[in-house]
């Protein structure tokens, strides 16, 4: 077993994990943060995206032991301090950027990372950035719109309304 100590959504946590314990399993089972989802086993669907030291990471492809000492942010920590939805979360609700909700945590975490890196992305840049996040419900149309809106860009002006 490996002892780990990290910060998750700003709070210090500790744990005892097997070598093979994935970060996503540590979050879901040990910390009961079940907002981070697992949708595949080949590091492709992105339902498990969290931020590790500020960068988007697939929590199903990182060992919990590797997160020792890291700063981890999950969907549960995205809301504003007063409990209201973050700008990105709110944009997803406003523009119907989710249906079943399963890929949504990963989408929100990816979108949040994108906007940090590129505050006014183009439609093409948004689509490119989401290459590692699969959604089966929305056809991505409203996800792209949501992220556009979250970046403060004009959504009605987008093509194909």
């Amino acid at each position: 077993m490996n002892s780990i100590k990290l910060r998750v959504n700003g709070k210090e946590v500790t744990g005892q994990v097997e070598g093979r314990t994935l970060l996503v399993d540590f979050l879901r089972k040990d910390l009961r943060l079940t907002g981070t989802h697992v949708g595949c086993d080949t590091t492709q669907c992105g339902a498990c995206v969290v931020h590790v030291n500020g960068e988007p990471v697939k929590a199903c492809a990182m060992l919990a032991a590797e997160a020792d000492g890291a700063e981890v942010a999950t969907i549960e920590g995205q809301a504003n301090a007063d409990g209201s939805l973050s700008v990105v979360q709110q944009a997803f609700q406003d523009h119907h950027g989710l249906q079943c909700g399963f890929c949504t945590p990963g989408m929100v975490m990816a979108a949040t990372a994108l906007l940090k890196e590129n505050p006014k992305p183009s439609e093409a840049e948004i689509r490119e950035y989401l290459d590692g996040n699969i959604c089966r419900c929305t056809g991505y149309h409203n996800i792209v719109k949501s992220i556009m809106a979250a970046s403060g860009q004009d959504v009605p002006a987008m093509a194909a309304e």
Binding site: T74, I75, F92, V108
Partner: peptide, 11 residues
């Protein structure tokens, strides 16, 4: 959406 967006859905 509020629960799905905040990671509090119950799958």
């Amino acid at each position: 959406d509020v629960r799905f967006l905040s990671g509090t859905g119950r799958y």
